[in-house]
Amino acid sequence: MAKYHITAEINGDETEYLCEPEQTLLDVLRDELNYTGTKEGCGSGDCGACTVMMNGRHVCSCLVLGAEANGAKIETVEGMADGDNLHPLQEKFIEHAALQCGICTPGILVASKALLERNPDPTETEVRYWLAGNLCRCTGYDKIIRAVMDAASEMRGN
């Protein structure tokens, strides 16, 4: 079976991989490159657990083919912290107990980061609608929303 030879930048590292035509970016990240922080909850773009940044936009990596990422800049949850320093969203999720089982957390963190890059001062409603594509079955979202709002506030310097 012919495989594609792809070069992409993943969390700042230039990365080469081979992928089958049917493999998704999620399959490649998890199974070929061992970036297992990105999770699969549905494989159909409905749950958001596989959310990654691709060229500055947040996407469901289960809806992107691995071959489509040629030349792309990909950021996953593994690339969020800066060395020893967690991203403020990561800190606030722990502080607010915004995760229970933690399986949706990587996708929600990446999606929230994308929100705060566009809108540093979102309202509660804006956060709720932005995250409406990221399912969480444990928390009822309350503490997630509070963590995102608090991280936004801290990042604005309050």
């Binding site: 922080g37 949850v77 593994e78 990561q90 933690g102």
Partner: peptide, 11 residues
């Protein structure tokens, strides 16, 4: 907590 916000935790 840190393992679960960094993608380190293994499911």
């Amino acid at each position: 907590g840190v393992d679960k916000v960094t993608g380190r935790a293994r499911y």
